[in-house]
């Protein structure tokens, strides 16, 4: 039995310690928002936050997640209010098939938490390992900037 802190709640997981967090979330805890895309850490679909840092959950054994703060897409909105990025994603009509977008959002959220107004180069660097097979990159860039603007306006 492993004890995990996911989206602010303590969860007990009956799974081997080498199981990647991705599969414990999806198959055992029923948190299917985090997606399986490649299983080898090269597509970014499974991105979530571990202590606020964007990580690939397909490469993260459960043992390495114990004692850390895990935030998944299900926990990105707070107090019933969408994260500015989620709002921007909806308004800028970013998704096509949508499958990669959870990972894109989690990478973008980690970026904005660190860099309030990222430059194009900073966006390219932070988002480089999140593949979108539908080609929504242009709108992702627009939405990140829109969310940065909205966040600043709120301050």
């Amino acid at each position: 039995m492993l004890q995990l802190t996911i989206n602010g709640a303590s969860q007990t997981v009956d799974a081997p310690p080498d199981m990647p967090l991705l599969w414990a979330l999806r198959d055992i805890l029923g948190l299917t928002g985090t997606k399986y895309g490649c299983g080898v850490g090269v597509c970014g679909a499974c991105t979530l936050h571990l202590d606020g840092v964007a990580v690939r959950s397909c490469q993260l054994p459960l043992s390495a997640a114990v004692g850390k703060t895990i935030t998944t897409i299900e926990g990105l909105a707070t107090n019933g209010e969408l994260h500015p990025l989620q709002q921007a994603w909806i308004e800028a009509d970013v998704p096509q098939c949508g499958y990669c977008q959870v990972g894109q959002l989690m990478s973008a959220a980690a970026l904005l938490a660190k860099t309030a107004r990222p430059s194009d180069a900073e966006i390219d660097a932070a988002m480089n390992d999140n593949i979108c097979r539908c080609g929504t990159y242009q709108r992702i860039r627009v939405a990140i900037k829109q969310a940065a603007d909205a966040t600043e306006a709120r301050r």
Binding site: I90, V94, P95
Partner: peptide
């Protein structure tokens, strides 16, 4: 905008894999 945007952006959209 797509009718599914909110579900996608909150991780609630259901694909076969889910």
């Amino acid at each position: 905008p797509r009718v599914d945007n909110a579900a996608v952006a909150t991780g609630q959209a259901i694909y076969g894999m889910d």
